[in-house]
């Protein structure tokens, strides 16, 4: 299957600037849109209210693909609407961010969508490459490690923070763009209606607990610094010193053991 024949959908959401609180494009979704630009025919899809069309124009201003709103009511569940949409419109790749910047922000949407459409879902994706057998995906792991994964489309990919930076949005192109409108399937999310959001309270710093049972132990804990002296080697030859270092590196699994 050549590249151009793959159909890709990127799920777009509204972002919120962490300091000003102003509506903006969601940063992770912008990265997903950027990645979709390389994967052929694409559509940006947002399940929500058409009143947000102005805010979504910043995605259109990236000049990657048209942006469309799947219109649902305020109380409706976007997963049900998207699931109903993708059951009618086949898509080879669905790209999403890992969590929304507004609302519950549980990060469950791609997984629930994958469950209802019975598709494989891969998280922390930072690169996608098309091969004859399917897709070769690079998954970003903690500490800069990378893992290669192969999967056959259709599939859902969740973008990682370390994916390539999204391009800037052009104001003129954004203002000229038309945002499409589709009627979405409404299914009320009853749990979400009772959610009561408050401003995030500060997490308290964890205090060091002193569990001394005797007065002498308490006195010691209060006065003596917890200096743990390491091993000090004065090697006779440099070989000896290097071996000591190599032994520790092998224990930590950083140098292969033979």
């Amino acid at each position: 299957m050549p590249l151009s024949q793959l159909t890709t959908h990127t799920l777009l959401s509204l972002g919120k600037h962490p300091l000003s609180g102003r509506t903006r494009r969601a940063e992770q979704d912008a990265k997903a849109f950027e990645l979709a630009a390389k994967l052929g025919q694409c559509l940006g899809l947002h399940a929500g209210n058409y009143q947000d069309a102005d805010a979504l124009k910043s995605f259109a201003g990236m000049s990657i693909a048209p942006v469309c709103i799947l219109e649902i009511e305020q109380s409706a569940d976007p997963v049900a609407a998207l699931s109903a949409y993708f059951k009618q419109t086949k898509s080879d790749i669905i790209l999403t961010g890992s969590q929304a910047e507004r609302g519950e922000s549980s990060g469950m949407l791609p997984y629930l969508l994958a469950k209802s459409l019975d598709l494989p879902v891969i998280n922390q994706v930072c690169e996608v490459e098309q091969t004859e057998a399917g897709l070769n995906i690079t998954q970003a792991l903690p500490r800069g490690a990378r893992r290669a994964i192969s999967v056959k489309p259709p599939c859902i990919l969740i973008i990682d923070e370390s994916a390539p930076e999204a391009r800037q949005t052009a104001y003129g192109a954004a203002m000229r763009a038309e945002v499409g409108k589709l009627q979405g399937y409404n299914e009320t999310d009853t749990d979400a209606a009772s959610f009561n959001f408050e401003d995030a309270s500060k997490k308290p710093k964890r205090m060091k607990k002193i569990k001394a049972k005797t007065a002498a132990d308490r006195f010691k804990a209060a006065t003596v610094s917890q200096a743990k002296g390491g091993q000090v080697i004065e090697p006779k030859t440099s070989q000896e010193g290097a071996e000591a270092i190599l032994k520790l590196l092998k224990e930590e699994g950083l140098v292969k053991t033979n």
């Binding site: 919120k16 910047e101 609302g103 519950e104 922000s105 549980s106 009561n196 959001f197 401003d199």
Partner: peptide, 10 residues
């Protein structure tokens, strides 16, 4: 934590 860490939700 909700709203990408800016709000709390019980």
């Amino acid at each position: 934590r909700a709203s990408a860490g800016t709000q709390d939700l019980t």
